[in-house]
Design a protein around this nucleic acid. Structure first.
Length: 214
DNA sequence: TGCCAGGCCCTCTTTAGGGCCTT
């Protein structure tokens, strides 16, 4: 069973380094069959949410005051992740908050988060842009909820990730799509995806036809 | 509403600058 955990944070702002805190987190587990488990919670980090962000997310200061303490939620999240590989859309953003919030409970942050935005820039170079909502529409995935809420964004990122794996497997006739391939794709030159995947395919499965589908 | 940050990516580049993406 090859499980990956897709995470998404809602926060008070853009920078954990500048004192912003997480206000909501969600994580969904996927395997080859789709989404198989979910975790979601508001969390109280004790920092006021700017009006603009309240309007963006629908998460109010009152909701946060009534939410469990951030430390409690992060302990639950850490146990939920259970060491499985992590994926996020624009992973550097979520990694910053995951690292900062885990540090507060004395846990080290997992390294090597995979980024669905980086992969999407290579798999869907023709997309109008690579925001999550645009990619969901571009790939004709049905939206599962309200954007800018953690669970909906995590679910839609999960479905996008699965769709990209399926496209790669189909277009390049791969026996499977190893996580290592996704990890390498996100750092490959943007304009050379075909050559890059073919090269990976030749090295990983030497007996297979290297030719790709159109 | 759009700043605050930071890493990535492109190009009229590389001794740089600006747009994208996340809240």
């Amino acid at each position: 069973m090859r499980e990956r955990v897709i995470i998404d944070f809602e926060t008070t702002g853009l920078s954990a380094m500048m004192g912003d805190r997480a206000t909501e987190v969600a994580a969904v587990v996927i395997d080859e069959t789709g989404i198989i488990d979910r975790f979601q919670s508001l969390m109280n980090g004790g920092r006021q949410i700017p009006l603009f962000v309240q309007q963006l997310t629908g998460i109010s200061n009152l909701m946060i005051r009534q939410a469990p303490k951030a430390e409690t939620v992060m302990r639950q999240l850490f146990d939920f992740i259970a060491g499985r590989p992590l994926v996020a859309h624009n992973a550097s953003f979520d990694h910053g908050f995951l690292s900062a919030e885990l540090d507060r409970i004395g846990e080290s942050c997992p390294t090597g988060l995979l980024c669905s935005m980086k992969v999407a820039r290579r798999v869907y170079p023709e997309a109008p842009n690579h925001r999550l909502a645009t990619l969901i529409a571009h790939t004709r995935i049905e939206a599962t909820g309200q954007y800018h809420r953690a669970l909906a964004d995590a679910e839609m990122t999960a479905l996008l990730w699965l769709r990209m794996e399926q496209k790669l497997q189909h277009d390049f006739a791969l026996p499977e799509v190893p996580l290592d391939l996704m990890r390498r794709i996100q750092t490959a030159p943007c304009k050379t995806l075909d050559k890059f995947v073919d090269s990976f395919k030749r090295r990983t499965w030497p007996g297979l036809n290297p030719l790709t589908h159109p």
